[in-house]
Write a protein that binds this DNA or RNA. Sequence first.
DNA 1: ACAATTAATTGATATATGCAACTATTATTT
DNA 2: AAATAATAGTTGCATATATCAATTAATTGT
Lengths: 146, 146
Amino acid sequence: MEKQSLPIGMIVGRMMHMMFRVLKKRTGEQADVKLTIEQFGLLHAISMKEEDVIQKDMAEMMGKDKSAILRIIDTLEEKELVRRVVDTNDRRKNFLMVTKKGEKVLEQCLKIEFELMEELQQGLSKSDLDTFYKVINHIRSRAEKL
Amino acid sequence: MEKQSLPIGMIVGRMMHMMFRVLKKRTGEQADVKLTIEQFGLLHAISMKEEDVIQKDMAEMMGKDKSAILRIIDTLEEKELVRRVVDTNDRRKNFLMVTKKGEKVLEQCLKIEFELMEELQQGLSKSDLDTFYKVINHIRSRAEKL
DNA sequence: ACAATTAATTGATATATGCAACTATTATTT
DNA sequence: AAATAATAGTTGCATATATCAATTAATTGT
């Protein structure tokens, strides 16, 4: 039916697509606030950073245009998961602060994601998973240099 | 700086994002027609099928709404990469046919993708890659059942 | 012949993305 | 200090994608 030797992007893409489908469904059902994958990713990235975060940094980190980030933050702010706070030392900058509600929702989504991954990884050995991570990191780090 | 234990979706997502960034850049530079990742994926899926293909099948295969597929096919048709041909036996159906131009563009894009993957896989052993594919397929097939 | 089903389409709405132009603010240069 | 650069954010515009609900046209089942 289907030929073998699919390009790797498509193979991984199909896996991600299926994962996201289930993830979206579950977070839609179980979390207090519905987040898209992009919103979830950005919220998580902001939350993880230990230093103060501004939009420009997020744009670079996520590899997107600053206006794309701006608009996702708009919706995160509407949902009261994030606030913009002007840097008094440089009023061009907005610090991005995750609200309590944001932390709670993020925690819920992360829990759902980790549980899902637990389920999906059933039957794989630790060494298989280690290799998997190794390959992913290898490919990503090489792609970053291109 | 960044915590470890990122959810797997994000780790894979970052890899895909970097891959797609380079792929988009190269196909934009080298291919006769610019395709988005979605257009590329759909064109490839149509081309690979050995039986006649209709939109409904593609929607199922790609896990998307039929109207999403319809609109991507609209743009593929505008770019003259695909044609809709009415099934004379059941005139509700449109067979999706890849044009010569479509085949040429697809070939160009696939070549670019395979070459990119060659580069990115440099330094990985065959056994690492086999394990990688095994894990991907494992996760996808489990996700499909949820 | 009538009803149910099917494939495709359309319209409405939401999200995401990049580019270019613009504003406000800060930094640099002369 | 005044003029000029550079920076962070914002806005407008165009394109792409996605889902849902309603509609149309064609086919199938009763």
